[in-house]
Amino acid sequence: MIYKIFYQPTQRINPRRENTAALYLKADSEVDARSIVENNTSYNVDYIEELSPKALEYEQQSPHYKLAELGK
């Protein structure tokens, strides 16, 4: 499945909506997605959304869509 992960770029600053960014990640489950992000970045994960096929199709039309490649 493809997950859209909303995150803050750093854990050192209080979360603010204005700083929220997103990345797309392929993982087996939401738990795996969170683990991959937390083990390979210093991001503060806000929310993880599993994308349905229609939602994924919509997201892929965005110029900002790029599947992240983080180590497992």
Rank of each mutant, 00 (worst) to 15 (best):
Y3A: 01
K4H: 07
K4I: 09
K4C: 11
I5H: 02
Y7H: 04
Y7S: 00
Q8N: 15
Q8P: 04
Q8K: 15
P9V: 11
T10M: 06
T10C: 09
T10G: 05
Q11H: 07
Q11D: 13
Q11N: 11
R12C: 04
R12A: 09
I13A: 14
N14K: 15
N14Q: 13
N14S: 12
P15W: 15
P15D: 02
P15K: 15
P15F: 14
R16K: 13
R16M: 07
R17A: 06
R17C: 03
E18N: 08
N19E: 04
T20L: 02
A21N: 11
A22K: 12
L23A: 03
L23Q: 04
L23F: 06
L23E: 04
Y24N: 04
Y24F: 13
Y24W: 10
L25M: 05
K26V: 12
A27N: 06
A27H: 06
S29V: 03
S29C: 07
E30C: 00
E30F: 01
E30Y: 01
E30V: 01
V31M: 02
V31W: 01
D32A: 12
D32S: 10
A33K: 03
A33H: 03
R34E: 00
S35N: 08
S35T: 10
I36V: 14
I36N: 00
V37W: 02
E38A: 01
E38L: 05
E38Q: 03
E38V: 03
N39H: 11
N39M: 10
N39W: 04
N39A: 13
N40C: 04
T41W: 03
T41E: 08
S42L: 15
N44F: 10
N44K: 09
N44T: 05
V45H: 00
V45E: 00
V45A: 00
D46F: 07
I48W: 02
I48D: 00
I48H: 00
I48L: 00
E49V: 08
E49N: 07
E50T: 10
E50N: 07
L51A: 08
L51F: 14
L51E: 08
L51D: 06
S52H: 05
S52M: 08
P53T: 04
P53W: 11
P53F: 10
P53D: 05
K54F: 14
K54E: 13
K54N: 13
A55D: 06
A55T: 09
A55P: 02
L56A: 01
L56G: 01
E57V: 02
Y58S: 12
Y58E: 13
Y58A: 12
E59A: 14
E59V: 12
E59F: 07
Q60L: 11
Q60T: 13
Q60V: 12
Q60W: 09
Q61P: 03
Q61V: 05
S62C: 11
S62K: 15
S62G: 09
S62Y: 10
S62Q: 14
P63Q: 11
H64Q: 14
H64S: 14
Y65K: 04
Y65F: 15
Y65H: 04
K66F: 13
K66M: 13
L67Q: 10
L67H: 03
L67S: 07
A68K: 11
A68L: 09
A68E: 11
A68Y: 07
